[in-house]
Amino acid sequence: MKDTVSEHNPRKAWMGLLAKAPEGRVATLLDAEISRPAFTWLRAPEIGSTMVRGRAGATGAPFNLGEMTITRCALTLETGEVGHSYIQGRSKADAEVAALVDALMQTAMASRLRETLLEPLEAGMATMKAARATKAAATKVDFFTMTRGED
């Protein structure tokens, strides 16, 4: 029996990365590397929403927090690979390029795209996150004792 989780993990990881990429960033990286292959739409880009849920007390029963906008599409390359994308926001161009990369990652181009697209994308996003984290860290309170009240 195949372990579906580990089988799906790399795809889950790159789809998540593509969904969270800054607007236009994936297109810039992809177009700098290759000219886009031909494809046909399985589902043209479509804007909708997802109901975001939270949990009462962070760990308890789920409740509906509110919706977020999301764009999805699906396409097929001429060689038959199917690419999907579900990404935050309302950019049909970003949804298209994310689905294209998802499909291309299932072809022989995978390792090249991993190196030239996914890794720089991930590094850029990690840098942005780290910059925020270091600013937060600078606002951490260092308590020091002025006096103790015993005497």
């Binding site: 479509e46 804007i47 909708g48 929403s49 997802t50 109901m51 975001v52 849920r53 939270g54 949990r55 962070a58 760990t59 789920p62 509906n64 927090l65 919706e67 906008t69 999301i70 999805r72 579900y86 996150k129 925020r132 984290a133 937060a136």
Partner: peptide
């Protein structure tokens, strides 16, 4: 907006604070 689904409950324990 058409609704595509509902998310998994978010995990605030992994929040980047």
């Amino acid at each position: 907006l058409p609704r595509f689904g509902a998310s998994e409950p978010v995990d605030t324990g992994i929040m980047a604070c």
